[in-house]
């Protein structure tokens, strides 16, 4: 298993707020790694920094063995990194199909149809609704569209930020099944979740974040049984 993503001593400031205080973690090829933690622990900030949307003040991010600091976010997509952002952020006024095409923006035209087929296979609902304006989809469908859209760039590493947010429990399960499916198809996953129970149950490994620091890490199973983690994030 090769190293997909390696983050070392990462520091990020929001203005004068020291949001990330020296985080280190790694994601190996083929894994599902999850970052869990309370609101404000720095999970989304970490993902946004890795994706190139935020600038780190210190530290290294290595993707597929190459340092990627300073590379603009839109160029990281063609290198095989994709972030499915918090709050879905599908293009409300574009159709489902156009949203998916945007996801494949960095790829040659000839490969778009092939990717569409893959995404439609994973999300049959999107195929049924390909002509629909994305803003008229339900929350669950929008989440599927956001994930499908991110998958269109055929990423080696897919980062998902709170994919279960605001969804009914039955949909949450469906979304997690699809994440497992994507992983089985060869996509490495870095998952940020508040639903720690679900995230740990599918994760190969996990890191627990607290106010900008990694406070605990291990396999998903181990953390599910960890007393401190149970108390803090799994409701006892």
């Amino acid at each position: 298993m090769g190293n997909m993503l390696k983050v070392e001593d990462l520091h990020v400031y929001y203005g004068s707020i020291h949001a990330i205080k020296g985080i280190a973690f790694e994601v190996n090829e083929g894994e599902i790694v999850t970052l869990i933690g309370a609101n404000g622990a720095g999970k989304s900030t970490t993902l946004n920094t890795v994706a190139g949307l935020l600038k780190a003040s210190r530290g290294e991010v290595e993707f597929k063995g190459e340092k990627i600091a300073g590379i603009p976010a839109h160029k990281l997509v063609s290198r095989g990194m994709s972030l499915c952002p918090e709050g879905r952020r599908v293009f409300q006024e574009l159709t489902v199909r156009e949203n998916l095409e945007m996801g494949a923006f960095s790829r040659p035209k000839a490969e778009v149809n092939e990717s569409l087929e893959t995404v439609y296979e994973l999300f049959p609902r999107l195929k049924e609704r390909y002509k629909q304006i994305a803003g008229t989809l339900s929350g669950g469908e929008q989440q599927m569209l956001a994930m499908g859209r991110s998958l269109m760039s055929k990423p080696a590493l897919m980062m998902l930020d709170e994919p279960s947010m605001g969804l009914a429990p039955i949909l949450v399960e469906q979304i997690f099944d699809i994440i497992k499916e994507m992983n089985k198809n060869g996509t490495t996953i870095l998952l940020v979740e508040q639903n720690a129970q679900m995230a740990l149950s599918i994760a190969s490994r996990a890191y627990v974040l607290e106010t900008g620091r990694v406070v605990s890490s291990g396999t998903g199973e181990k953390l599910l049984k960890d007393d401190a983690v149970r108390k803090a994030y799994l409701g006892g």
Partner: peptide
């Protein structure tokens, strides 16, 4: 289409690989 995407959500458009 990329223009419409940028017009709606610049950050999300960047994440699609749009410059």
């Amino acid at each position: 289409k990329a223009m419409r995407a940028v017009s709606e959500d610049r950050g999300a458009a960047t994440l699609m690989g749009i410059n």
